[in-house]
Computed example of a mutant assay.
Amino acid sequence: MRAAAGKESPSSSAVGGTPLLKDELDIVIPTIRNLDFLEMWRPFFQPYHLIVVQDGDPSKTIRVPEGFDYELYNRNDIKRILGPKAACISFKDSACRCFGYMVSRKKYIYTIDDDCFVNPSGKEINAVEQHISNLLTPSTPYFFNTLYDPYREGTDFVRGYPFSLREGTPTVVSHGLWLNIPDYDAPTQLVKPRERNARYQTLCVICDHLRLGVKTGLPYIWHSKASNPFVNLKKEYKGIFWQEELIPFFQAVVLPKDCTTVHKCYIELSKQVRERLGKIDPYFTKLADAMVTWIEAWDELNPSGPAAEVVVVNGSSNGK
């Protein structure tokens, strides 16, 4: 692990005063390359602590621009810290960010990929601030409001929206959306290489069960896909077939009433993955094992354990 805290430059000062939740939020970034993209995000990210999780060759040096307070973990660090449980951390994809969630000691986590940029329209959009605003206001998962997010300034509940539901539910995930390059799978990306998204497109069994809210929408950030669609196809091809089984599985999942925490829900979900998806491919049996190991590793690194609940922002943030 390497850590650095550079001298603050004038450009790194918070936009509009003291940053929201400055001491309560970490930014988690999975990467295989130098983090030059941070220069564009400097006005918004520099006030916060960064946790960088390096995928790929651990002998490669990842350069982080000066002036950022960060810690960096590679595969060797993760094996040293988690020991045999390190197998629950996925590598060769951006899911290695999950280790950053484990080691963060903050209530909220904002996570972003290294191929996502500030919208080049010229209008400054503080994505971190918008996600925080989403998390600090309720969600409305039980009745659709035809105006986007009635808790945002300039909008409200429309005629006919039940007053009994206007208090909403706590928001635990704020999921931002991409402009420019859509989040296509590899085959679609290959047949539509020039397609760009000028609109907005698009979780959750556990959230629904625990009556927690997820917001998908603002903020929108610019996606400039750095991955190779041919490499992606090698990684994704089984999933293209599996999704026809996975989607009905998640649509039909029911969690018992005694699953009253995220921990309990996740363990129960691992059992159902093993029982119902294990017959599709041995991968899902390994996945079920890894889900249990993940909870065990989380509890080791976060002694408060099951009492600590998780909040996530994508784009984005997680809170514990």
Rank of each mutant, 00 (worst) to 15 (best):
S13I: 05
L20M: 11
V28C: 03
D36T: 11
L38E: 05
E39C: 01
Q46N: 12
G56V: 00
D57E: 09
D57Y: 05
P58V: 05
L72Q: 14
Y73H: 10
I78P: 00
R80Y: 02
I81M: 05
A95T: 08
R97M: 06
C98G: 01
V103H: 02
R105V: 04
I109S: 14
T111M: 05
I112D: 03
P120Q: 10
N126C: 03
S133L: 14
T140H: 03
P141F: 06
F143Y: 15
Y148R: 13
Y148F: 15
D156W: 10
V158R: 08
P162R: 03
L165E: 15
D183Q: 08
A186F: 01
T188M: 13
L190A: 01
T202I: 14
L203A: 10
C204R: 13
I206K: 01
H209R: 07
L210A: 05
Y220Q: 08
S224L: 14
S227Q: 14
K234R: 13
K234A: 07
Y237M: 14
K238L: 13
G239P: 05
Q243L: 08
Q243M: 14
L246C: 06
Q251K: 15
L255S: 02
K264S: 14
C265L: 09
E268T: 07
L269N: 08
Q272G: 04
E275M: 04
F284Y: 12
L287I: 00
M291I: 13
V292C: 03
V292T: 07
W294P: 00
E296M: 10
E296F: 05
D299H: 09
P306G: 15
G319K: 09
